[in-house]
């Protein structure tokens, strides 16, 4: 029982990170109908920037929260600039091109980001400086660490903030209008290009935070980490219903739990035939099953073309 509870906690924590990254996919898809392949790589860049900044500052005997905040701030700002640049350079000129074109540039951008990161940070795994508090609390026979609590809290605050932004502010209304019809939104005096840029910027900031959290949680960062992270976050977005903000949140949490429970119990279920080294496969199977059974996702609206 306590193992089950432990797996649930771990799954929720990981799932909240997937949800943060999934929000970026779903926001961009909602407005442009485009899968931004480079989004996972932004999370990777965020993680590596935060790690480098924190490693550089940890020699100065500064208070830990300040160091973490500086690392996070650096990561967020770099990723926001990158996100803006990517949209401007690689996607905007192709907005009226055949469908294949932005998909191909998207994969090009993600390869470029990956290899630039490899040139800067090298091929080896970088370990996260161990400055974060290591405390933990007992909870129904399972343990939850301080880092996990902080991750859950941050993720939930950010998700609620984004939800409020999209539902209640002027910018949010402009975003929703643009996603329904960029042309009509333009007629209503909305600067569609600016809204799209802001969407990329917000999504990239969230990706940076997500990337930072993953690397802090596992204590590792690597130039290739963005690929699987991106794939999982995308699966989460599809599971919840791509284009739906609340869907991405739900999908992320659910995927985290599925993955954690799956990795924990696959050995027992298959009598040791498959082991927990297949953890990374679950997201993919969830993606395939959702696409077969309910392509519009859990919270999605059934439409013919979007599907």
């Amino acid at each position: 029982m306590s193992t089950l509870f432990q797996q649930l906690i771990n799954g929720l924590v990981l799932g909240s990170v997937y949800a943060l990254i999934a929000l970026g996919y779903t926001m961009v898809y909602g407005i442009l109908g485009l899968i931004n392949f480079a989004h996972g790589e932004l999370a990777m860049i965020g993680a590596l920037i935060a790690l480098t900044t924190i490693a550089a500052l940890s020699g100065f005997a500064l208070p830990v929260p300040l160091v973490v905040a500086a690392g996070l701030l650096a990561a967020i700002s770099v990723c926001m600039v990158l996100g803006y640049a990517i949209e401007r350079i690689a996607y905007r000129p192709l907005r009226n091109a055949p469908r294949l074109a932005p998909l191909i540039t998207a994969i090009g951008v993600s390869i470029v980001l990956q290899n630039v990161a490899m040139l800067i940070w090298g091929r080896q795994y970088l370990s996260f400086p161990s400055i974060l508090p290591q405390g933990w609390h007992a909870l129904f026979g399972a343990r939850i660490t301080d880092i996990q609590i902080a991750m859950l809290a941050t993720a939930f605050v950010l998700m609620f903030a984004l939800d409020a932004l999209v539902r209640r502010t002027q910018l949010g209304r402009a975003m929703r209008a643009t996603s329904q019809s960029p042309q009509l939104a333009g007629l209503m005096g909305i600067h569609a290009d600016r809204v799209i840029s802001l969407t990329f910027i917000i999504g990239s900031g969230l990706a940076a935070i997500g990337g930072f959290m993953v690397s802090a949680y596992y204590g590792l960062a690597h130039y290739y980490m963005g690929f699987l992270l991106g794939l999982k976050a995308f699966s989460a977005a599809v599971l919840g219903g791509i284009g739906q903000l609340r869907g991405a949140m739900l999908g992320g949490l659910l995927l985290g739990v599925i993955e954690s429970l799956g990795a924990g119990y696959i050995g027992i279920l298959t009598h040791g035939f498959l082991g927990s080294n297949y953890q990374d496969v679950f997201a993919f199977f969830v993606l395939i099953v959702v696409l077969i059974v309910r392509p519009s996702g859990l919270l999605g609206v059934q439409t013919i073309d979007r599907a």
């Binding site: 091109a97 540039t105 090009g108 951008v109 390869i111 470029v112």
Partner: peptide
């Protein structure tokens, strides 16, 4: 690989 990625973007543009 960096060059290949750049080539994909530049050709498409």
């Amino acid at each position: 690989m960096l060059l290949f990625g750049l080539a994909l973007i530049i050709i498409m543009l």
